[in-house]
Design a protein around this nucleic acid. Structure first.
Lengths: 109, 109
DNA sequence: TTATTGTATCGCAATATTACGATAAGCAGA
DNA sequence: TCTGCTTATCGTAATATTGCGATACAATAA
């Protein structure tokens, strides 16, 4: 059926899954790394940096924006992107909490 | 074309994307939480806990196993699953490093 | 006005994911 | 052996993702 049954999971589980999914693509990881390493808003020179077509980059940017991870501001002709600090903080706490659940205990298997 | 161009990204980017993708589904997050909260190997009572069909759960477990996040041991009739500590550590360091890149600096947008 | 430039969107093709019923495979007990 | 139990796999349907050419759109420059 290809459609996730979100209604049977908690809000937290769905939210975390959505954030992870938004980052679960090498191109989107590369885009985020570029944005961060520029340490500022980056205007769309991403097409030259990565080896993907402009339409493809634009689509990945859209997905990151939909997830709230980045935000774009129109700067004259071009658009500048930067990390959304609130979402990034949320991401850190949600993933952090989740990863901390496992303490390496339990001698099994 | 529906096929990710892995060859233009670094090994790290592809690996992190793959790990994130394996967890980027609420059902798989729920499964991992169950396994961890049991603080031991969990035999397949997951079908009763989550509201998904047995075939679906088995498929999600397979994906988590393929990603190396969990491991399964045959325990007589049933199979016991637990976290793979090595992969979990890798996960923590990879995601941790990635999230730490952004320091909330840059007054932008 | 007419380029030009930077992005977004459309539409398509190829492939992947999600979910599940049906069924198979493996093991333990009667 | 036969039966029941647990898990894996197959096949299928519905939907999502990925990538890109073509094109539209908005803002500036000539």
């Amino acid at each position: 059926m290809g459609l996730t049954k979100t209604e049977i999971f908690t809000q937290e589980q769905n939210q975390l899954a959505q954030l992870l999914k938004a980052m679960a693509h090498p191109a989107r990881i590369a885009i985020l790394q570029q944005i961060i390493s520029a340490n500022a808003c980056i205007c769309g020179d991403l097409v030259d940096e990565l080896g993907l077509a402009q339409a493809t980059i634009s689509q990945h940017l859209k997905e990151l924006k939909n997830a709230g991870i980045i935000q774009g501001t129109i700067e004259g002709v071009s658009v500048c992107y930067c990390i959304n600090p609130d979402t990034w903080k949320l991401l850190e706490s949600q993933i952090g909490d989740f990863l901390k659940l496992y303490k390496g205990s339990a001698n099994c298997c």
